[in-house]
Amino acid sequence: MKTPRLILPALLALVMSVVPARAGGELNLFGWSEYIPQTVIDGFTKETGVKVNFETYASNEELLSKLVAGGGSYDLVQPSDYAAEVMIRQKLLSALDPKLIPNLQNLAPDFRHRAHDPEGAYTVPYMSGTVGIVVNTDKVKTPVKGYHDVFTPAFKDRIVVLNDTRELVTWALYTLNLPINSITPEALAKARPVVAEWVKLVKVFDSDSPKTALLNGDVDVGIVWSGEAALLWKENKKFVYVIPAEGAHQFIDVLAIPANAKNKEAAHQFINYILRPEVSVLISEAFPYTNPNLAARKLLSAEQLANPASYPPGTPKLETFRDIGKAAADVDRLVTDLKSAR
């Protein structure tokens, strides 16, 4: 009868290890892949007993597609600003209860009330970034300040840009001094010759990992996400990040609770947990974007704060994307046409 006596405590221990995880229920989190460190999720589970089911996507459109088609049910999602705006308008999000998120005070006020959610009633900023120019200063000796300096014949076949139709058109609109968020057929007609010249100069279109072509030495300049640029800078200081003088796209990735969420309590708990400075700093360490959490920024090292891709110096002109509705189809058609003509 020796064995059962040994098994029983073992079983008990096993049950004990499972039970607290159940006590707080489960949280179905639908977020960007490689954006929330596993240590943060584990820490949350350890503290609250809430089991986190973490499902990932790689673009806002993937999130929207899966969310509107139904099927899954999520308690917490992580859209970018313009996707959140659409979701708010379509009543896909549930309003937050600020009383449950005391750590909101840690956030920089200018990140909380943006056009996508003016009252800050539905979303909490998670991380922010920009789209800007990376220059390999070993190869490029001329100053590069804006889009005009990138798209020159001198850099023909030495350029990588994001494979994103809206981004490409936005940069063209900036050089034309046109608004980026109200895209009219006239504006597109003006942008067309500009983009047509540009696509001829580009060597690689890549949204997933534009840093690869830069690191490999296949290109010398790029227009990429700031997160990519920060990783490049971390790897080698020869990669310098510049926010285009004409203006740049800023994105704010937020946390929000879907209207049909089952465990809103745990979702609030998770948001509040993430906003703690000592937790938020872990995210910054893993993913060097701009952290809107001022309390967490105080805990960052001098080198992290000096990374120009994470915390750009000066006061550049930055704008977030708004949903452009049906114009998105025209933008797509324009870029497809121009790329296809090469």
């Binding site: 960007w32 892949s33 499902e55 993937e62 990783l231």
Partner: peptide
Amino acid sequence: FFTTNAASATLPIRVFGMAKVGL
């Protein structure tokens, strides 16, 4: 991607996610 939930995520889904911060 369109048919999975958190529990059944496969290797390609994780690998493509990891590509974002560098494989």
